[in-house]
């Protein structure tokens, strides 16, 4: 599909834009297989590297502190009833079900989504997207698909990593601040580990990764002219990404835990 276009006008512009974004995301998914072709594989690896390795420090710190905060807050409440032994379970469940995918999604939207939107927007402003289309190279296949696929692959991995690191962070707090033995904390955490929770958590991460990619690509391709256009696209990709993560997170929880 062609992505160089003028913005939709008129009263129903919002719906037309949303429809365009959905078609764009769909077209990108259809191009996912082509990303594995010999000439495109290098690009996927480059994008995976950008997503995983470059966000790793941020994701580590964010999830560590998420786990620590969770353990402290929940631990203090549990201590009032002498239930500290269940602290591991409480932290683990909230991380796997909610906070792991959520904090990972926020990091990805802020670090990767914004970078993808800015990169594509700069290319749009510089006529590079137009140049690709005129060379009969689909920007959806050539630019959008590898970036989105990298996010889709990396997001569940990073989400899982978040849960592990967060649980560790909680363990540190419980051992140092709440006098719960680390071994006991881990035992409690493992006893609460549930396959369904894990799957729902991973599904959330996957959906978040896809959403962040789709939003970033849509905003990048739709950038307005000039340097201001790049800034605005980047900003909007982060804001829209955050909002959609919250909304989809709620919806998945709602469906999975009735």
């Amino acid at each position: 599909m062609t992505v160089t276009r003028e913005p939709y006008g008129g009263r129903f512009a919002f719906f037309a834009e949303t429809g365009f974004a959905a078609r764009l995301a769909f077209a990108a998914v259809l191009s996912f297989p082509s990303v594995f072709r010999r000439r495109s594989r290098g690009e996927l690896v480059r994008q995976l590297y950008a997503v995983c390795i470059r966000t790793l420090p941020v994701v580590t710190v964010v999830s560590l502190f998420t786990g620590m905060i969770l353990a402290l807050q929940v631990g203090l409440e549990l201590r009032r009833f002498n239930y500290e032994i269940y602290l591991g379970a409480a932290v683990m469940v909230s991380l796997v079900r909610e906070m792991g995918p959520f904090s990972c999604g926020m990091c990805l939207a802020a670090c990767v989504g914004s970078a993808v939107a800015a990169e594509l927007a700069a290319m749009k402003v510089n006529d590079e997207i137009a140049a690709l289309e005129i060379m009969s190279i689909s920007p959806v296949r050539f630019l959008a698909a590898p970036r989105m696929l990298a996010l889709v692959i990396a997001s569940p991995l990073l989400g899982f990593f978040c849960c592990v690191v967060g649980t560790m962070g909680g363990g540190i707090v419980s051992a140092t601040q709440l006098n719960v033995d680390f071994g006991q904390y881990i035992a409690s955490a493992l006893s609460a580990a549930d396959t369904k929770d894990l799957f729902v958590g991973l599904l959330k991460s996957l959906v978040f990764g896809f959403t962040i990619g789709a939003v970033a690509v849509y905003e990048g391709f739709g950038a307005g002219y000039g340097a201001a256009g790049v800034g605005r696209s980047t900003q909007r990709s982060v804001i829209t990404g955050f909002l959609l993560i919250l909304m989809f997170g709620y919806m998945i929880t709602r469906v999975a835990y009735r």
Partner: peptide, 27 residues
């Protein structure tokens, strides 16, 4: 149609040779 853009519109992460070869490689 071949199109030379005012901004040249080359892809920054590819060498000049790869940029020129791109339409042949892809199509």
């Amino acid at each position: 149609i071949g199109y030379l853009f005012q901004s040249a519109a080359l892809l920054a992460w590819m060498t000049v040779a790869d940029n020129v070869a791109l339409p042949l490689r892809e199509n």
